[in-house]
Amino acid sequence: MAHQSGPSGFLLTTLNSAVNWTRTRSMWAATFGLACCAIEMMATGAAHNDLARFGMEVFRASPRQADLMIVAGRVSQKMAPVLRQVYDQMSEPKWVISMGACASTGGMFNNYALVQGVDEVVPVDIYVPGCPPGPQSLMNGILMLQDKVMSGEIVR
């Protein structure tokens, strides 16, 4: 996570806050559901735990139109280059949430087939633990990311 210095001066900081506010209020996620966590991600977007109240019910298939990538599920060795390619196609500002134990650390599958943690491939902003994390945990992670973007902790 690069720590660049943000804009200074009264007018620019207000503008910066406003921009950060708009970025958090309609963060569109790229569909990167891989395994079990993807089902929980879909359940988070569904009726009972509604992501639409955060402006996030839209999951864009094209990475060019998304600014958040929720890596939901285990990333195998064959999938890692694809993951990197999709991440590279997203335009700035972009954030990554690593959802679930397998994406964060390789989970219970400490073996030859999985990348032990998605942060070996892409820079991650928020790690959401769980196997799979329930919709409430994922929403907690998303809100935490929104707080960090709002407060300027993550500067893009």
Partner: peptide, 21 residues
């Protein structure tokens, strides 16, 4: 497995490949 993988993982003489935690 990826096409360029070397070795045959399910053989008994191939280790699980776990990394130290």
């Amino acid at each position: 497995l990826p096409d360029d993988w070397e070795g045959y993982p399910l053989r008994k003489d191939y280790s699980v490949g776990s990394v130290p935690v």
